[in-house]
Write a protein that binds this DNA or RNA. Structure first.
Lengths: 222, 222
DNA sequence: CTATTAATCAACTAATCACTTGAATAGTGG
DNA sequence: CCACTATTCAAGTGATTAGTTGATTAATAG
């Protein structure tokens, strides 16, 4: 059955594109916004030629597409399907690969002195104006219920919306749960910019089931 | 940020597991039902040692898990997340890789010019007795789980067992997934004999992860 | 035209991968 | 105990991959 083999070989091409850490990092950058080869190379700390070659592999796998404007070539995700794919990949990795869990634990608790903020502590400190609570989940989930007073900035908009954060108060980010990558990613990015940030213990479902108050609806623009 | 690199490296391990056609084929078989190494090797036409090695790669990537029963080791998907991942992979490949489009068009669409039956529609129509659901996968996979009320006739027995089909109700055939040719083939053969037949949207794993009811065990002879 | 810049291509090395072969393990039954 | 079976391990080979280096192609500016 040559057809079946051919099909799996083609699917494997997409898998192959996802089989290298540098390419995955490039993909994540591209997912934020369209970028040139040079920019991407700098972000991922790769040589120009190497970056170009990786991007072409991604392009041949159908994950990204590009347009030339003047001297520069801008790459972007070819569709939202790719985001879903990356999401599914992360979810599987996060949930099943023990090494990822180990990395997350190491990073959050020991290596970077990032022990999560206990739930019980947070409410008081929000009321005292000591912390800004950041919900990095998608808007739908935020609207459906969130920690009182939290502002919603989805992870992919974080860089563009840094101005909305009060840089004098500590940021406490949370997301879907204890192993959800969103909040730790947010904390990592904020810390890259020298913004004090920590992660809330667990995520929203745990907050809710702990019997703590919640708030629903979307935040009006202020 | 070495941590970030490490994380992407771990994610890439999952990508690497998906980067080989034989592994993807094994995964699809495993998605149907738990199976031993020997069975999987035969299905995918691989040597024992080779199969074992591929399965171990899948296991280390967190995609499958296994249990030993007597002499045999049975592999199964480690969670429904994996089906979602495979789905996302297929979707991206299908939509963006022109070679896949060509293959799909050449082999599949030509055979099936009628739209597949949506999952949500099927249950109601089965209950109303309007359709006969036909599972054309091998008996083991049928036994491990199938659409409620479906009858099991493997493709190679279809011609001999036509009498079992109620020719007054429409036949809806399904198999392993959106690109599995078993159901396409069945529909084509039934139409050749002037039996009204259509294909179910996707296959059994997708049905299961959509949260729809399933039935297990083999059908008693009636 | 030439110089400059962004990106790609081509050629090469070291590392990794797919697969084979043959040996080693672990369970089972006599 | 031994024989038998399903699986895994270990070692080796040819193919593929990631990354480097230096040359080459396009677009732009003077």
């Amino acid at each position: 059955m040559a057809f079946k083999q051919d099909l799996f070989t083609q699917f494997a091409r997409v898998g192959k594109a996802l089989s290298n850490g540098n390419r995955l990092e490039l993909l994540e950058f591209i997912a934020q916004s369209e970028r040139s080869v040079e920019q991407l190379g700098k972000l991922a700390n790769l040589s120009m030629a190497n970056t170009s070659q990786h991007l072409q592999q991604l392009r041949h796998a159908g994950l990204v597409s590009c347009r030339k404007q003047g001297l520069k070539v801008f790459y972007r995700l070819s569709s939202d399907d790719v985001i879903h794919l990356l999401d599914a990949l992360r979810k599987v990795a996060e949930r099943h690969v023990t090494d990822v869990q180990y990395l997350v634990n190491t990073y959050l608790t020991v290596k970077d002195n990032l022990e999560p903020v206990p739930r019980t502590e947070l409410l008081q400190r929000v009321q005292d104006g000591l912390v800004t609570v950041l919900d990095v989940r998608p808007p739908e989930e935020y609207t459906a219920g969130h920690v009182p007073g939290a502002i919603n900035i989805p992870l992919n908009e974080l860089e563009q919306r840094l101005a909305e954060l009060d840089k004098n108060s500590e940021i406490v980010a949370y997301c879907r749960g204890p192993h959800c990558i969103l909040a730790f990613d947010a904390v990592a990015r904020l810390r890259d910019r020298n913004i004090t940030a920590r992660r809330l213990q667990d995520g929203f479902p745990e907050w809710k089931t702990a019997g703590l108050p919640i708030e629903t609806g979307s935040k009006p623009d202020s």
